[in-house]
């Protein structure tokens, strides 16, 4: 009889200890979150303005690098030769068959057209807009270089073609196309 009561006592006590431990553990986990989340991009970073760019002054064969969200963005007015080369490259020859265009579905094919499409579906094959960061380890590739009339990353020797697609070297993906749209025939807003 007494042992039974004691047993009930003990199990009630164990339950109390376990419940308290669990409450403490949950609270500690919740309390840690602000200390982790404070390192995520803050409201001012997230709200950073989109960047507007006027394409009109860019001459054929000329490229510029502008900054968007702290990253380099390559904007290039391609020559007819570059466009021609990019268009006739069969998809089968590409290392990465995905467009990597943030304005398109994630499985869009890496055709030249898909590389120059904006968020509204507008295509202007003269202007190629891409994030200038090598998809290998984050260096900035050099323009008008490499074996494919495009970009070449000097860090580890990745070659991109005139549509910014990876053709040779260690980089796994094509250069990313940032979200952008034409607000007029020659003005784009990135972001």
């Amino acid at each position: 009889m007494t042992t039974k009561v004691e047993n009930a006592d003990v199990s009630r006590r164990d339950f109390l200890y376990i419940a308290t431990g669990a409450v403490g553990a949950v609270g500690t986990a919740l309390a840690i979150w602000p200390f982790i989340d404070q390192m995520n991009p803050d409201a001012s970073v997230l709200a950073l303005a989109s960047t507007e760019f006027d394409l009109a002054p860019l001459e054929e064969g000329q490229g510029v690098t502008i900054k968007w969200r702290g990253k380099p963005v390559f904007i290039r007015h391609r020559t007819p030769k570059e466009i021609e080369e990019a268009k006739k490259t069969p998809l089968a020859e590409l290392k990465d068959p995905i467009a990597r265009n943030l304005n398109l579905p994630p499985d869009a094919e890496a055709t030249d057209e898909n590389r120059v499409k904006d968020a509204n579906g507008k295509v202007n094959e003269k202007y190629l807009v891409q994030i200038g960061i090598c998809t290998h380890l984050g260096c900035v590739p050099l323009g008008e270089q490499g074996d494919y009339d495009g970009w070449f990353c000097p860090c580890h020797g990745s070659h991109y073609d005139s549509a910014g697609r990876i053709r040779k070297g260690p980089a796994p993906r094509n250069l990313d196309i940032p979200p952008y749209k034409y607000t007029s025939d020659t003005v784009i807003v990135i972001g």
């Binding site: 200890y17 308290t20 409450v23």
Partner: peptide
């Protein structure tokens, strides 16, 4: 609220 519940539980643990 959380601290209140936790403190109450701790008080019971301590008493027991």
């Amino acid at each position: 609220l959380y601290l209140g519940v936790f403190a109450l539980l701790m008080l019971m643990v301590k008493k027991s």
